[in-house]
């Protein structure tokens, strides 16, 4: 505050050093993203087809092209700490249209994986983990849905773990194998007490 001589904080932010220095980029990050996403993330030429296709972009600050740029340059911190990372709906429109045949959606997924390893993850995503562990569904069935299904002549519960709860142990085994539930519980506890 003192440095900006009374100007508001927004200006302070604007006056920050914004240059990109070589040390900012971590080539290992590019390699990791490529390895996890299994797509040629380093080949992006920033045409903008992805953001142009994105249903999230017009309604949010999410710019998938920016994340692709960060993947190319290895801007690990900038990518993983940006809350926009979690705004992708994984509709795969960008992946359908990318002229370089990259799968930007999978690049986002790989970055989420890497962020999770650093405990960077919104709590609502973790609650989804808890829901899947409990019911096998990220969005479990509810009474409104059940009524609607009945009206359509369907069974009240879909032919999933809702109808066959005997498969739940298998699902829990998979989640436990990756320690996903334990990690989620730990982080939720840390955040929410």
């Amino acid at each position: 505050m003192a440095r900006t001589k009374g100007y508001p904080e927004a200006l302070d932010k604007k006056l920050r050093e914004q240059r990109f220095f070589r040390e900012d980029s971590n080539p290992e990050f590019t390699k990791n993203v490529k390895a996890i996403s299994r797509t040629i993330a380093h080949m992006c030429y920033q045409c903008g087809t992805c953001t142009g296709s994105c249903p999230s972009a017009p309604r949010s600050s999410y710019r998938i092209r920016k994340f692709m740029r960060r993947a190319v340059l290895g801007l690990e911190n900038e990518a993983l700490t940006d809350p926009d990372l979690w705004l992708c709906t994984t509709c795969y429109s960008c992946s359908d249209r990318c002229p370089r045949d990259i799968i930007p959606t999978d690049v986002i997924m790989s970055m989420r994986n890497l962020a999770f390893k650093r405990d960077i993850v919104p709590v609502n995503f973790l609650k989804t983990v808890t829901a899947i562990y409990a019911s096998g569904h990220g969005v479990p069935n509810n009474d409104v849905n059940r009524a609607a299904r009945e009206k359509l002549g369907l069974t009240r519960d879909p032919p999933t773990t809702h109808m066959y709860p005997e498969y739940m142990p298998g699902i829990r085994k998979i989640i436990d194998h990756y320690k996903l539930k334990a990690e989620a519980d730990r982080i939720i506890k840390e955040r929410e007490g």
Binding site: C47, G48, T49, C50, T51, G52, S53, A57, R63, R65, S93, C94, R97, P99
Partner: peptide
Amino acid sequence: RGRVANIIEDKKTKNLHVMTD
């Protein structure tokens, strides 16, 4: 500067919406 992602036609006016970044 942006490659066109998709084009949507306005059914009434036959105008076109060019979507890009």
